[in-house]
């Protein structure tokens, strides 16, 4: 496919089967293929258990798929590496380090000189709006601030791809909206490829140039959308974007799609 040729990140026919101790097995992913060009912003939606986290962990290199491969910049992914940064939902910051040390962790591991790290970290803290908090302990920050630290820490390594597994899932609505704006801003300013998993249809619409809806059992891509809202949201108020006529109709469409899937799961269980 021509599309795949110019892709910087290629998800090539990925399958993942978990063998359970009782002898049965779960097909968490089956034949998932997708290409992403540099600088694309992809959001992934789907009912619980459809394999979103599994897919992200495979891209990050934490899991080896039972079939298929991940190719980034013409290299096959073998394990975790700094070219693929990860932002977790919560609990992944190092609470024994100051905010500054957390953000500078990646460069410090590479042996970048102290001075360079400092300027870089200050820059990043400025970008995420935490310039006054560099010397605080991370557990002294609110949940929203902690996620900003996690974002800054990820950016400090200058990864090619940023992977986020429900990064805003634990935040309250207001903080979440601010953080959505921040993600869009960072996306535009840095030009990174971003994959973002979310449970919120609204968030997926706002933070996805492309939106993937996945279906469960086996986990697979159900439908893909190309959306204008992320681009719109870069300059405009996110609330203005939500008033857009298309936004509402897309939201309803996707919501009912996911509802159907959820109902199907429930029906199958009975």
């Amino acid at each position: 496919m021509a599309d795949e040729k110019q892709s910087s990140l290629l998800i090539d026919n990925i399958s993942m089967t978990f063998n359970l101790p009782d002898g049965s097995s779960v097909e968490a992913l089956k034949d998932v293929s997708l290409g992403l060009a540099t600088g694309e912003l992809l959001s992934v939606l789907g009912p619980s258990g459809c394999g979103k986290t599994t897919l992200l962990n495979i891209i990050a290199g934490f899991l080896a798929p039972t079939g298929g491969q991940i190719i980034l910049n013409d290299h096959q992914v073998q394990g975790p590496a700094p070219e693929r940064g990860m932002v977790f939902q919560r609990g992944a910051l190092f609470e024994w380090m100051s905010v500054r040390k957390n953000v500078g962790f990646g460069p410090a591991m590479k042996g970048v000189p102290e001075k360079q790290i400092r300027t870089r970290v200050d820059e990043l803290l400025e970008i995420v709006g935490l310039h006054d908090f560099g010397d605080k302990a991370v557990y002294e920050l609110s949940g929203g601030m902690q996620q900003r630290v996690a974002l800054a820490r990820c950016l400090a390594n200058d990864p090619d791809v940023i992977l986020m597994d429900e990064p805003l899932g634990a935040l309250d609505a207001l903080t979440r909206e601010k953080m959505q704006g921040l993600v869009l801003k960072l996306w535009k300013e840095t030009g990174k490829t971003i994959i973002l998993i979310t449970h919120s249809v609204e968030e997926a619409l706002l933070l996805g140039e492309r939106l993937l809806v996945m279906a469960p059992r086996p986990g697979r891509i159900h439908k893909e959308y190309h959306l204008p809202f992320a681009e719109m949201g870069v300059d405009a108020d996110l609330r203005e974007v939500k008033k857009h006529g298309d936004y509402g109709s897309k939201r309803e469409e996707i919501l009912s799609m996911i509802w159907e899937m959820e109902e199907e799961i429930m029906g199958r269980k009975e």
């Binding site: 700094p82 940064g85 990860m86 977790f88 190092f94 962790f105 990646g106």
Partner: peptide, 20 residues
């Protein structure tokens, strides 16, 4: 998640032991 994050940030096994 902390260990995963550290690996993703480029830490080696020894660094993970020492810093995480």
């Amino acid at each position: 998640s902390k260990v995963h994050a550290a690996y993703s940030l480029g830490a080696s096994k020894l660094q993970i032991l020492l810093h995480v």
